[in-house]
């Protein structure tokens, strides 16, 4: 038993036990499992790319990229512009991504440069740089020269809406693509496929000579240096990939959610992604696709199952409380473990 716990790690063990307990409770309370499973699939698909964005950062040695909001904002800008031009469906989705990509690449590059001058403090700095960018963008959202009635307040207010509905543009384009039903469970095929593509890209890259240089630079900078690797360049590369994935991630997330959330919404977006990958078994120095898969499934299942169960037995906001405790708890656990030296 002790061996088993050691192998899968104490936090995962607790979360799995808790999840099993919630599942049992759900069945006992006659909550329809098909709805729960459908929800898990959707929430997995919509969050997984954001979690995936953590991988190149950790691999390149910048630790958890708490500056995910940077990429997210680039993604939001892409989506807003595509709506401004009244694009919808897959065109809208791909144009959003195409616009977001260069923005995220430039943003990631500059941010990577900055991280190279604050080695050892990446997470603390990243976190507050992220917050600063989000709050700065709040002013931008107020002043941005968008005209589409979808985007701005119908009357009265200034600037962009707090939430922009995607109903008439890209809402659910991926979720509905090739979606099918098994019994009462709906499988969002497009959404899962889309994630699979990016997961495959990240995986194949990590098998290539370029990717290996990056991973080696992240896991032991001195070793990398003595093997002729330009460590700073690799770190920038990881930061750029992470930022780009975050931009794509939020576009995918939003089409599934049905809304773009502006202003303060991206503020805490890095926390759940960081928590998910840590739950999956990643450390501050090592992360793989497997960690993304396991972590996202466990974390999202927990939230999905907890919601209806707690709605029956307690106050509705409890699901949110559990999210806060679990996600911050796991990050705290990772931070206080020996070894993960980057902060």
């Amino acid at each position: 038993m002790k061996d088993f716990i050691n192998r899968i790690g104490l936090p995962r063990f607790i979360i799995i036990i808790f999840l099993i307990f919630l599942m049992a409770l759900a069945i006992y309370l006659n909550i329809p499992l098909s709805d729960v499973i459908t929800d898990i699939l959707v929430r997995f698909g919509m969050n997984a790319i954001l979690v995936l964005a953590m991988v190149p950062g950790i691999q390149a040695g910048i630790g958890m990229n708490f500056n995910l909001p940077l990429g997210i904002i680039c993604g939001l800008i892409g989506a807003l512009i595509s709506i401004e031009f009244k694009l919808s469906g897959f065109t809208g989705l791909f144009v959003s991504i195409l616009i977001a990509l260069p923005l995220a690449a430039i943003g990631g590059y500059l941010y990577g440069k900055m991280l190279n001058s604050v080695k050892g403090q990446e997470m603390t700095v990243g976190n507050y740089v992220g917050y600063s960018i989000v709050s700065f963008m709040c002013i931008f959202w107020l002043l941005a020269p968008f005209k589409s009635p979808e985007l701005i307040w119908a009357y009265g207010g200034n600037g962009l809406r707090v939430t922009v509905s995607l109903e008439s543009s890209t809402s659910h384009v991926l979720n509905n693509f090739l979606a099918f039903k098994i019994g009462k469970v709906t499988v969002p095929t497009g959404l899962l496929l889309f994630f699979a593509i990016f997961a495959f890209l990240v995986w194949i890259y990590s098998q290539s000579n370029k990717g290996l240089s990056m991973i080696v630079a992240g896991s032991n900078a001195k070793f990398a240096l003595s093997n002729g690797i330009d460590v700073d360049k690799q770190r920038i590369k990881g930061t750029v990939f992470s930022t780009v994935l975050a931009a794509i991630g939020i576009i995918v997330y939003s089409q599934s959610f049905g809304f773009l959330q502006l202003y303060n919404a991206p503020l805490y977006s890095a926390m759940p992604a960081a928590a998910a990958i840590l739950i999956g078994g990643a450390s501050l120095k090592r992360a793989t696709i497997v960690h993304v898969l396991i972590g996202t499934i466990l974390f999202q299942s927990l939230l999905v199952v907890a919601l209806p169960v707690i709605n029956v037995i307690a106050e509705g906001t409890m699901s949110e409380v559990i999210r806060v405790i679990v996600s911050n708890g796991i990050i705290l656990y990772a931070l206080t473990r020996e070894g993960g030296s980057a902060a």
Partner: peptide
């Protein structure tokens, strides 16, 4: 890495706090 830890600790404690006062 005290600063990032103290920050996350604040969030975490906030979760516990809500748990106690809400439930």
């Amino acid at each position: 890495k005290e600063m990032i830890t103290s920050m996350v600790l604040g969030f975490f404690a906030n979760g516990i706090y809500q748990f106690v006062f809400l439930l």
